[in-house]
């Protein structure tokens, strides 16, 4: 999974996953994969919230 997702992308992807598994026709054998995706999305957001990526600092100039 891409790790440079924006918060908007990550959040809406997670929303999309919820909608998918709320659908009655969900195939159980795809569930494991979706759980993995959801965990990854949450992990990305949680990490980003607490750790500014270095390229952000670089982009905002030197000081």
């Amino acid at each position: 999974m891409k790790t440079d997702l924006t918060y908007d992308e990550a959040y809406s992807n997670l929303e999309e996953l919820v909608i998918q598994i709320e659908d009655d026709s969900i195939q159980l054998d795809t569930l494991a994969d979706k759980v993995k995706q959801a965990n990854a999305l949450i992990e990305i957001c949680e990490t980003k919230l607490r750790k500014i990526e270095t390229d952000v600092e670089k982009a905002s100039g030197s000081h």
Partner: peptide, 27 residues
């Protein structure tokens, strides 16, 4: 503002895993 986002994120996470749990229970 960021805390509010994190709360929303965690609420969505809970919802997701609640459904997973329900699906597993149903299976």
């Amino acid at each position: 503002h960021n805390f509010e986002f994190e709360n929303r994120l965690l609420a969505l996470k809970d919802r997701f895993f609640d459904i997973v749990k329900q699906l597993m229970q149903k299976a």
